[in-house]
Write a protein that binds this DNA or RNA. Structure first.
Lengths: 236, 236
DNA sequence: TCAAAAGTGTTATTACTACACCCATGT
DNA sequence: ACATGGGTGTAGTAATAACACTTTTGA
C-alpha cells in the first residue's frame, strides 16, 4: 500500500482544499497549566498571538506534519501528542478556505527548561486562565484541548507526560492540581497512586525542593498495561 | 467573519488536498451493536463493502458535509453524531491523496425500522463482531469508533441515543449490554439509573415484549445538565 | 395453569473523604 | 533550635457487587 499513489486524479468531482495542522502545547510551570503561544508570522493577522502551525504538504501524512511542526519548535520528537479535532468551518481563516487539524501535546518540565525561543519563533508561555486573544478559531481549539486534557487525565495516567522520567510524588500532585486547578488531598492522593502500583520507588531522593528530600519514582508501564487490560481506570 | 473569503489564494506555498467525510453508523438490533455498511459505488474498489462517505465541497463546512452524508442515507437530520478522527496517511486511498474525517453516529431503533435501502444506496447492518473487510482504512475507523463509543458511553448518557424517546428499562439495559458486549446485573443497573433521577417514569407501559408490560421512561435532560454541572458522571 | 418477562432488597466488601501530627535535614 | 517541606493513619460514609424470589398477565 506504500507506493500506490497515482499521479492522475481519479476523483474528478472533488475539489481539493488547503489543510493545516495547529499544535496546542501544554506544560506545567509555577504550579499552573501553561500554554505555549507564538507570534504569527504570515499574513493575514501577522504579529498577533497564535498557535504554531503549518500547512500539510502533499507528500506527508497528517501525523508526520504534526510531528514536524512540534519538533521544529521544540527540538524533541518523542513528545506526547494526540489529535484533537478537525476544524472545518467555512470562513474560519480569512486568508482562504483552510481545514485545520489541531493536535495537543504535553511537554515535560525538564524539556521546557531548554529555551524554546532559540528555535526560530517568537513565543511565550501563558497561564491557562490568562490566555490572550489568539488568531482565527485558535481560542476555541485551546478550550477544547483543555477540556479534552482534563477528561483524558481523569482516566489515563498522562500526568506523567508533564514530568521528567524520574519525579517525586509532590511534583506529580502539583501537576494534577495544575490540570484541574484545584487542591487535591495529599494523603489520599498518595494512598491511591501507591496502591495502584503504577509507581516504582527509586533509591534516590530529590533534594532540590526540601531539606529532607523526596523519594524519586518512575512510572511502571508494565503495571499500567496490565491494569488497562483488566479494565482499571485511573481517577483523580 | 461570515463573508470574508477572498477569491485569490493568499497562502501561496500551500498545496490543496482532497478531503472527504466517512460516517460510522451504529445501531442496536437483536441485542447486538450493529454497523451499517454500504456497497462502494466509485472506482477504485467499487462494489466492495465500505462506510458511506463523500468529498467535502469547497463551499460547505466539514460539519455540514458530515450531516449531508448522514441525512442522505437516513433521511434524518437530528441524529447523534460526533467527529471521531482525521485519517491522513499518505497512501490510505489508492485513488488519490485524500484526507478523510470520520464521524460516528447513533441511530435509534425506531428510526432504523424505516427502510434505509430505499434511500439511494445498497446497504446492510452487520454485527460489530462480524464486520466484513471494508475498503481502505475503514476497518481501522470502525475499531476506533467502537472504542470511542465505549469510552463515551461510560461517562455520558448516550445509550438513550440508541432508543426511541420513550423506552423501558429492560431496553436500556439491553443497549448497554450490546455496547459493552457483556451481561450487566439487572437489579444494580435499575437501582443506579433510578437513583440518578435521569429517568422520568411515564404512566404508560410497553406491552410489546411481555405480558406483564414494562413501564416507559423518558430521559430527563434537565437533571442531566444539573448533574453535569456538579461533576457527576455516569458509569456503567 | 403455566410460561415469560418485569420488578424488587439485603448484605458484605470496597473505595472514598475528611482530617492533624511527626519526621528529617540544612541552615 | 527552628523552619521547611515530606511523609504517615484512622474512622465514618458512600458506592459497589453479588445474589434469588415474587408478580403479572396473556395464551
Amino acid at each position: 500500500m506504500n507506493d500506490k499513489i497515482k499521479s492522475n486524479i481519479q476523483y474528478t468531482n472533488a475539489a481539493p482544499i488547503l489543510a493545516a495542522v495547529d499544535c496546542i502545547i501544554f506544560g506545567v510551570q509555577e504550579n499552573e497549566l501553561q500554554l505555549l503561544v507564538f507570534k504569527r508570522e504570515v499574513e493575514p493577522l501577522s504579529g498577533q498571538w497564535s498557535l504554531i502551525g503549518d500547512f500539510i504538504k502533499k507528500d506527508e501524512s497528517v501525523a508526520v506534519a504534526a510531528r514536524r511542526v512540534l519538533e521544529e519548535v521544540t527540538g524533541f520528537n518523542d513528545i506526547y501528542m494526540k489529535q484533537l479535532h478537525l476544524f472545518g468551518e467555512l470562513n474560519r481563516d480569512p486568508g482562504d478556505r483552510v481545514l485545520s487539524v489541531a493536535y495537543w501535546s504535553l511537554i515535560r518540565i525538564d524539556q521546557v527548561h531548554q529555551s524554546f525561543k532559540a528555535r526560530n519563533h517568537e513565543s511565550k508561555w501563558v497561564s491557562f486562565n490568562k490566555i490572550p486573544d489568539l488568531v482565527l478559531d485558535h481560542n476555541e481549539m485551546v478550550n477544547m484541548a483543555i477540556q479534552t486534557l482534563r477528561e483524558k487525565a481523569r482516566f489515563h495516567p498522562i500526568g506523567f507526560e508533564l514530568l521528567p522520567a524520574e519525579f517525586t510524588i509532590p511534583q506529580l500532585l502539583m501537576v494534577y492540581e495544575a490540570i484541574y486547578n484545584r487542591k487535591i488531598d495529599d494523603r489520599n492522593f498518595r494512598k491511591k497512586i501507591l496502591k495502584s502500583e503504577l509507581l516504582d520507588r527509586l533509591e534516590k531522593k530529590d533534594k532540590s525542593t526540601s531539606k529532607k528530600g523526596s523519594f524519586l519514582y518512575k512510572f511502571n508501564n508494565e503495571t499500567y498495561k496490565k491494569l488497562q487490560k483488566e479494565g482499571y481506570y485511573f481517577d483523580f
